[in-house]
Amino acid sequence: MQGTPFERRALHDISLDINDGTFLALIGHTGSGKSTLIQHLNGLLKPSSGSIKMGSTVLEAGGKKQDLKPLRKKAGIVFQYPEHQLFEETVEKDIMFGPRNFGVSEEKAKKTAAKVIEMVGLPQTVLEKSPFDLSGGQMRRVAIAGVLAMNPEVLILDEPTAGLDPSGRVEIMELFYNLHKSKSLTTILVTHSMEDASRYADEIAVMHKGELYLHGKPADIFNQREALQQAGLDVPETVQFLMRWNERSGQNLSLSNFTIEELAKQVSQSLKKRGS
């Protein structure tokens, strides 16, 4: 609210281009403005200055009202704890909610529901159940299916794995990554986890105090460890390990291979080399 003690400028001076087909990880400390930024992308929040361009739609500060439905169909958001948004009597109806709002026929929406429920790894029998009879993890999947059913071109994920157990985390992230690849989506992942960012993202954008702090390829970002620490973050554990390794052994292993599998391979190779 402007002009009151509650006023706070959430975002300022952000200029960020995201190309089609990119997997972008948006990372930052709590309150750094990540969630606020993504809500601008489909017009849930409107900028008080500046503009947002998504495909052919342009949202401008002070611009006149326009029909936001095409934009919202194009950019699907999976919110934090999406299971809170379930409301229908059956899972099927809830998944159909999005498509029906965007004018898809009942029949087609039903078919879509059957398709997406499998995508998120749940059996068809779930469709007839009440979403409130499911477990927390299943509810999350149903809610995600509800967003996927809209068939968005841009998928925006706001900490989709928050509150899940470790194996659930991996499953959900793999699900999104496979979708990203197979449907050539543009994916924007809001996360706290440098590990997730390093594993899946093509690009990383770091937010700090409402500003875009760093933006680039993961390897470039991880080379700026001090800057990351200033923003209250750190490089992922694998990169920390690589840095230490290089320091101690005097070798120069590339920091750009930082998934755990690649790391293991690199280290074993360099050990073999030493042995021979």
């Binding site: 958001i77 909610f97 999005g98 965007f102 809209m150």
Partner: peptide, 29 residues
């Protein structure tokens, strides 16, 4: 409200009867 709007729900336009129905997805959760 935001989550449902992101799924295409419309709380602000349309005839009264439909608008009342539009609040079900908000009230149940």
């Amino acid at each position: 409200m935001k989550a449902q709007m992101a799924r295409g729900a419309d709380f602000t336009s349309g005839p009264i009867k439909e608008r009342a129905r539009a609040f079900v997805p908000l009230l149940v959760p």
